[in-house]
Design a protein around this nucleic acid. Sequence first.
DNA 1: GCCAACGTTGGC
DNA 2: GCCAACGTTGGC
Length: 154
Amino acid sequence: MAAYWLMKTEPTTFGIDHLRERGIEPWDGVRNYQARNMIRDQMQPGDGALIYHSNCTVPAIVGLARIRSAAYPDPTAFDPDSRYYDPASTPERPRWYVVDVAYERHLPRPLPLAELRTYPELEGMALLRRGNRLSITPISPNHWEFLLELAGAV
DNA sequence: GCCAACGTTGGC
DNA sequence: GCCAACGTTGGC
C-alpha cells in the first residue's frame, strides 16, 4: 500500500522546475531527525509526493512527484565542500539519508497555503499545524484525494 | 525585516 | 536531566 508525502523545497534553491529538468534527483540535505526517520524507515518506491514551495512569495503545493528508490546514505553529508557536510556522518555510520524523487507533473492549478487553510476537509494536515517546520510530512489518502481534486489533477 | 515556533547545544 | 541561549525555519 503506497503512502503519500509532502516535501518542502525552496524554489530559489531547488524548485519544481529544477526537478522537471532533472527528471529524477536525490532529495538531499535533510538534516532533521524526524524527517530523516520518515525517509529512512517509511518511504517506499512508488509512494506519491506533493512538492511544496516554501519561503517564497506565494507558498503553495505546486506539483506531483514519485518516490523511486529505497533510502540510502546522503552523499552530501560526506562532502566537505557541500553546504550539507556533516563530519559526524560517515559511510560506515551514516547519519543522514536520501531517496530518489522523480518528477511527475505540475499541478494544473497551484494550491496556495492561504487557500488550504480555508478547507475544514484538511483539518489535521501537518503542513497547516501551527509552527510546523518539518520539511517532510505524511499526507493521508483522504487529504491526497481531496488536494488532487482541488487542483484539477484527477 | 519581523518574529513566533521549534530544534540543538552546552553549562551545570 | 534541566533549561537558558542560540540558530533556523518560514509565514506574513
